[in-house]
């Protein structure tokens, strides 16, 4: 492995890494709030809403993300909904990840003792106030490690976008591998993924520490 070769293919790999990061960022921005909303619906007492959301979670967790990407980009045009490539990727990723996040949040909500809701009621707090001021601060602390797990998964799952023709980090590596007939680009790809996930782990650790009050 010569350094010259590494320097030569690095720009194209970094370009791929940029797309990977874009998908990562926008998916998190969309799916975390959506997941929170869905989890509130999942714990609600309104039955039809609960059924609908359970069906959504089942659908999203029950089929491979790769298949969902294919349906969104190649299947939806059949009924007249046309996304551009990047939009399709973000749409599919947000829907998929929101389902996982919703289940994690649901676990968090259910671990809050029923007594706290009752206490809040006695104090004449509204439902919104109870959720915002009392429940969510505790839920956040509980779910951070599980969310972190999914966040790290997301970095690697983003490589699935090759199926709709987007050039992410792994694809850039594959292109270089088939052109230069060597596995070196894939080793570099692995190193870049490790670095990205290293940074993620570090940040998550900091966040966890920041929320570790009352312990």
């Amino acid at each position: 492995m010569t350094l010259k070769y590494v320097a030569e293919i690095m720009p194209s790999l970094l370009q791929g890494a940029e797309l990977t990061l874009q998908i990562f960022f926008w998916t998190l921005v969309g799916s975390l709030p959506l997941g929170l909303l869905v989890s509130l619906g999942l714990t609600s007492k309104f039955k039809p809403l609960k059924w609908l959301l359970n069906f959504y979670v089942w659908l999203m967790r029950g089929t491979p993300l790769l298949l969902q990407l294919i349906f969104v980009f190649y299947g939806l045009p059949i009924i007249g909904i046309v996304f551009d490539r990047f939009g399709a990727a973000i749409f599919a990723f947000i829907l998929n990840y929101a389902a996982y996040f919703a289940e994690i949040f649901r676990g968090g909500f259910q671990s809050i003792d029923e007594g706290q809701y009752e206490a809040a009621k006695v104090l004449r707090l509204s439902y919104g106030q109870t959720i915002r001021k009392i429940v969510i601060p505790q839920v956040v602390k509980i779910v951070i490690p599980s969310i972190g797990n999914e966040v790290i998964n997301l970095v690697k799952d983003s490589s699935l976008v090759y199926v709709i023709g987007l050039g992410d980090l792994l694809r850039a590596g594959n292109v270089a591998t088939s052109r230069d007939v060597t596995l070196v680009p894939l080793i570099l790809v692995a190193v870049i993924y490790l670095l990205l996930i290293g940074i993620c782990t570090f940040v998550l650790h900091k966040v966890e520490k920041r929320y570790s009050y009352f312990k």
């Binding site: 030569e8 293919i9 720009p11 194209s12 370009q15 292109v175 270089a176 088939s178 052109r179 230069d180």
Partner: peptide, 8 residues
């Protein structure tokens, strides 16, 4: 037939 050079 169609491929990317090192500079992309």
């Amino acid at each position: 037939m169609g491929f990317r050079q090192k500079n992309g």
